Amino acid sequence: MLKFVKNHMDSISGIEIYPIISLLIFFIFFVVLFWWVITAKKEYINNVSNIPLDNQNHTEL
């Protein structure tokens, strides 16, 4: 089965670009996420982290 898949994948022209594109998307996503975390304002982080503890906005169903 693996031999069939390898032979089939080799027959597709330009397929070698897809792993490179996937790696670039993965890397860029985490670089942007890291940049956002580093540059986020402390006040925003504190407000968001206190949302689960805030009982004023709690409504019962």
Rank of each mutant, 00 (worst) to 15 (best):
29 F>D: 05
43 E>F: 01
31 V>G: 02
38 I>D: 14
8 H>G: 11
43 E>C: 00
55 N>W: 03
1 M>A: 14
19 P>R: 07
4 F>M: 04
26 F>N: 08
19 P>F: 07
3 K>L: 04
4 F>L: 12
42 K>E: 13
55 N>L: 04
35 W>R: 05
1 M>W: 07
52 P>Q: 13
60 E>K: 06
14 G>S: 11
54 D>M: 02
52 P>Y: 14
30 F>M: 01
45 I>A: 11
54 D>I: 02
22 S>N: 10
52 P>C: 13
60 E>G: 03
46 N>H: 05
57 N>Q: 07
8 H>W: 13
35 W>A: 10
24 L>E: 03
28 I>G: 01
21 I>W: 09
31 V>D: 03
47 N>E: 15
49 S>R: 06
6 K>H: 01
27 F>E: 11
38 I>T: 15
48 V>Y: 10
12 I>D: 01
18 Y>K: 01
53 L>A: 12
15 I>A: 06
7 N>E: 15
39 T>G: 07
43 E>Y: 02
17 I>G: 02
7 N>K: 12
21 I>L: 15
29 F>S: 15
51 I>Q: 07
3 K>I: 11
58 H>R: 11
3 K>F: 08
11 S>Q: 14
51 I>A: 04
47 N>G: 06
45 I>Q: 08
2 L>M: 10
5 V>M: 15
16 E>P: 00
14 G>V: 06
56 Q>G: 05
24 L>N: 02
6 K>C: 00
59 T>P: 00
41 K>E: 05
48 V>K: 05
24 L>D: 00
20 I>D: 02
59 T>W: 01
15 I>R: 00
21 I>D: 07
8 H>R: 14
5 V>G: 06
2 L>R: 09
61 L>G: 11
7 N>I: 03
15 I>G: 02
54 D>R: 03
12 I>S: 00
16 E>S: 13
45 I>G: 02
26 F>R: 06
32 V>W: 01
14 G>I: 03
61 L>T: 14
8 H>C: 09
9 M>S: 15
